[in-house]
Amino acid sequence: MSTMEYGNLAYLVLLGAVLVFWFFVQNRQSLNKTLQQGALWGLIFLGTVAAVGLWGDIRQTVHPQQMVMTDAGRIEVPRGPDGHYYLTLDINETPVRFVVDTGATSMVLTQADAARVGLDDEDMIFYSEAMTANGVVRTAPVRLDDVALGPFHDRNVRAFVNEGEMTKSLLGMEYLNRFARLEIANGRLVLER
């Protein structure tokens, strides 16, 4: 913590102590009731802290798992709450979350994801174009050394890096066609090799 953060912490502790002291002085005739109210507020505070601290676990319980391995050679992915299917692929041993886009031809990485997997910005040349719902965007073709989805590994996979703004990387049909079976039914995406 920096000096300024220690100062802020000391100020908040002092302010809290003054407020608690004032509260007890104002309610000294009914000390028992004051203690009950203080305990109630303390429990509310602790409950809020616990909910914030456990939010990731709570969200994972409410939000279905990303990927479920059922049998050898089979991957099932539940539909997300927003109606899309998401897959997390390990690209060069770095996890990247993709939205499955059967309307996209290729695998398209955001610039941030490309940097995370070790693609150097200076080596990319944005000379190709892609037609999107937002119009034409420039892309840079790249080769990914290692792409893994669960037990399935592919080498030297062709992909593109989008020069425009994208919130998530897209997983198009070129990659999905590597699977012998692709089925979307009953809120699940099933991939088999």
Rank of each mutant, 00 (worst) to 15 (best):
M1V: 07
M4R: 09
Y6D: 14
N8F: 12
L14T: 01
L14P: 00
F21R: 11
V25C: 09
N27M: 10
R28Y: 14
L31D: 12
K33A: 15
Q37A: 14
A39N: 12
A39E: 05
A39Y: 14
L40M: 15
W41I: 14
G42D: 01
G42I: 04
F45R: 10
L46W: 07
A50T: 13
L54I: 13
Q65D: 15
M69D: 07
A72L: 13
E76S: 10
V77T: 11
P78Y: 08
R79E: 14
R79N: 10
G80P: 06
G80Q: 13
P81D: 10
D82S: 03
Y85S: 00
L87R: 01
D90A: 09
D90N: 12
N92R: 02
E93P: 03
E93R: 10
V96Y: 08
V100C: 02
L109N: 03
A112E: 13
D113K: 05
D120H: 03
D120I: 00
D121Y: 00
D123E: 06
M124E: 00
F126M: 09
S128G: 05
M131K: 10
A140E: 04
P141N: 02
D145K: 07
V147N: 06
A148F: 06
L149Y: 03
L149S: 04
G150S: 09
G150V: 07
R155P: 04
N156A: 11
V157I: 07
R158C: 07
A159R: 00
N162L: 09
G164C: 02
E165C: 04
K168Y: 12
S169N: 03
G172H: 06
A185G: 08
R188E: 11
